[in-house]
């Protein structure tokens, strides 16, 4: 008890030192103009490996847990028949899971066949560690030809772009991230605009010409003029239009991709336009 003020003073000094350290760290990043900080790349690379291992372990544990639950359910009945039923059930589950996965892969392969640009299939091994940013981690990196600003797509539509590739993994910024934007065209009226992420579940459509013909339910696809996303990929559907005095005030777009359910994606291996590469530098 006698040491209490001393301990508190020591932790106060420690707190000040750590807070100053954080502020220096933040300042260093804000002042730099060289793109992604080295520290972030190194730490992300290391943590992506942890995510990869964890993702694998979780999958194994989930499989093991499911198997255990199914086996313990059938132990009350006749042992031999019960074992048989359990085995069949497990096999059925596996077959169903495999069929589901095959169907998903087939749609991905169908999409790959339709694309005129080279792509690389990737599995999602982790999600963002904070709710402030909407990102995913995929199991492909620079060793597989993945580079910054490459587009990431799925059969449901555009997913996002690569923001930080490491050797064996890459971070994907989703379209719904508050820093994300994609050039779009309205399929019905061919009016062009830009869809921005809000950081929540919806996108907002801006930079439409004032005379543009837009209605709720209109479908948006990528226009390709941003130099990142190939043209023709579904982005979403106009969900809500707010007007004030006859003038469009804001347009909310529901994304076509359900980001929480994504398991596999395609990385478009085409290099982004030189202007985009210059800007990301």
């Amino acid at each position: 008890m006698t040491n209490f003020p001393g301990i508190r003073q020591r932790s106060g000094y420690l707190f000040l030192a750590v807070a100053v350290g954080h502020i220096v760290l933040i300042s260093a990043q804000v002042n730099t103009r060289s793109g992604v900080p080295v520290l972030q790349t190194v730490v992300f690379g290391a943590l992506a490996e942890v995510q990869r291992a964890t993702s694998g372990a979780v999958r194994v544990a989930r499989g093991g847990w499911d198997g255990y639950v199914h086996l313990s359910r059938v132990q009350a009945d006749n042992e031999r028949l019960q074992q048989e039923v359990a085995d069949l059930r497990v096999q059925l589950q596996l077959a169903r899971a495999e069929a589901g996965r095959t169907a998903e892969m087939r749609t991905l392969l169908d999409l790959r066949g339709r694309l005129t640009v080279p792509t690389r299939a990737a599995e999602i091994i982790g999600s963002s560690a904070t709710t402030d940013f909407k990102t995913l981690t995929i199991d492909r990196g620079t060793d597989d030809g993945v580079r910054t600003d490459m587009a990431v797509v799925s059969p449901a539509g555009a997913v996002g772009r690569i923001v930080m590739p490491t050797r064996r993994a890459a971070k994907v910024q989703l379209l719904i991230d508050r820093s994300a934007a994609v050039a779009v065209v309205l399929e019905r009226s061919r009016a062009q605009g830009v869809a921005f992420g809000n950081g929540d579940a919806a996108l907002r459509l801006e930079y439409l010409p004032s005379s543009a013909d837009v209605a709720e339910g209109d479908t948006l696809t990528t226009s390709g003029i941003d130099g990142i996303y190939p043209p023709g990929f579904l982005v979403g559907r106009v969900d809500r239009i707010e007007r004030a005095g006859g003038v469009v005030k804001s347009i909310s777009v529901a994304p076509s991709v359900t980001f929480a359910n994504l398991e596999a994606v395609l990385v478009v291996l085409a290099q982004p336009s030189p202007a985009v590469q210059e800007a990301s530098r």
């Binding site: 760290l25 963002s128 904070t130 940013f133 990102t135 981690t137 971070k171």
Partner: peptide, 12 residues
């Protein structure tokens, strides 16, 4: 580092 923002903001 995993999220994508400025490293240090969440830390602070």
């Amino acid at each position: 580092s995993l999220g994508g923002g400025i490293v240090g903001v969440g830390g602070l």
